[in-house]
Structures are given as C-alpha cells and as structure tokens.
Simulated assay, not measured.
Amino acid sequence: MLVVAFNLVFGVVRPFVAEPMRVPSKSMAPTLQPKDRMLTNKLAYDLTNPDRGDLVVFKGVEKKGKGERLVKRVVGLPGDVVHVDRGVLKVNGEPQNEPYLSKDDRGGGEGRDGARRKAPPGVNSFGPMFVPEDHVFVLGDNRANSHDSRYFGPVPTENLIGEPSLRFWPLNRLGTP
C-alpha cells in the first residue's frame, strides 16, 4: 500500500497536479516572503489563460536561469502595451490599481524617516513594451528588487507551470498567497 501511495504522489500528483516550491528571493514581498513554501497548482492553465493580476509560476527564460522556477505577477496579456510612468504601472495607457505594492515600490515616496526616496532605475519608468501573442508580461511585487519582464522580456505561455495555490510554510502564514 505504501509503494502504491508513493508511486501515486511522485508519479502522478507531483508531475501533473501539484508541486511544492520554495520562494527563492524577496522579489514578491510583501505578498510572498523568501523561503515561503507553497504548492503550485499545475492544472491552473491547462484549460484557461492567466488573467491580469494572477500570480504565476514559470520556467525561467534566460540562458543563465533557464528552467529555474520563478514566481511573479501577470500585469500584461497578449496585445497589451505595458508602461511604467513615474512609478505608476499603465496597461494600454490606463493606470492600474496595485494594492499589493508598498509605498516604496510605487516609485519612491517618503521613507519611514520622512526623507524623500529616489526609486531605483527601472522602477520609476519603463517601456512602453508590446506583449506578443502567446506571452505574458510579469513583474515582481517588490519592483525595486525584482528581476522580471523589464529585464528578460515577456514570458512565453508555454513556460507557465501553474499558479501558487497554498502557502504551507511557515505555519503562521498558512493560506492562499
């Protein structure tokens, strides 16, 4: 019975249904923290495409990190034009509501000490960039510390693995991301 269960989990569930993942960096903070562990729903995009605002897990597209599992937020869909203007994300010219960003990630602002902060390059401005067919444009929630589509371009939809469905570690953060 144990052998059958083992074969089901590692022969069917992990490759086709759900796979654990450890968040490798702080690029998605505050939504996901480094070393958070979560399950990736690998069936999420078998019948549908991601929507703007979805978190996606995908295989890296750069030679250096090809095949590496990354997690980012979809901000642009095929046919969209993505642009960051003075810290404000615009899609097809329309400013986007991004409640998951901290004030520091919205292009600068004041720090906790009251001093004016200058946002890092690439946070205050970017683009415009057209998202081609069968691609999505992804950004990290922690824009100042995220290597994302601003650097490696739109992600082919064939690279999408699934969506984060359940954070299971640490226990005090148990739940959906």
Rank of each mutant, 00 (worst) to 15 (best):
P34W: 02
M38H: 08
N41F: 05
L43T: 14
A44N: 06
T48Q: 12
T48N: 07
N49S: 15
G53H: 07
G53Q: 02
D54Y: 03
L55K: 00
L55E: 01
V61I: 11
K63C: 10
K64W: 15
G65A: 15
K66M: 15
K66W: 15
V71H: 02
V71P: 13
K72W: 00
R73I: 01
R73W: 09
V74F: 06
V74Q: 00
V74N: 01
G76C: 03
L77M: 10
V81D: 11
V82S: 01
V82F: 00
D85W: 10
D85P: 13
G87S: 12
V88F: 01
N92V: 07
E94L: 14
Q96C: 12
K103A: 14
R106E: 14
R106Q: 15
G107Q: 06
G108K: 00
E110Q: 14
E110V: 14
R116M: 06
A119M: 10
G122T: 07
V123G: 00
N124K: 11
S125H: 15
P128M: 06
P128T: 04
M129C: 08
F130I: 10
H135T: 07
V136N: 06
L139H: 00
A144K: 03
A144V: 01
N145Y: 05
N145C: 04
S146C: 08
S149A: 04
Y151R: 13
G153D: 07
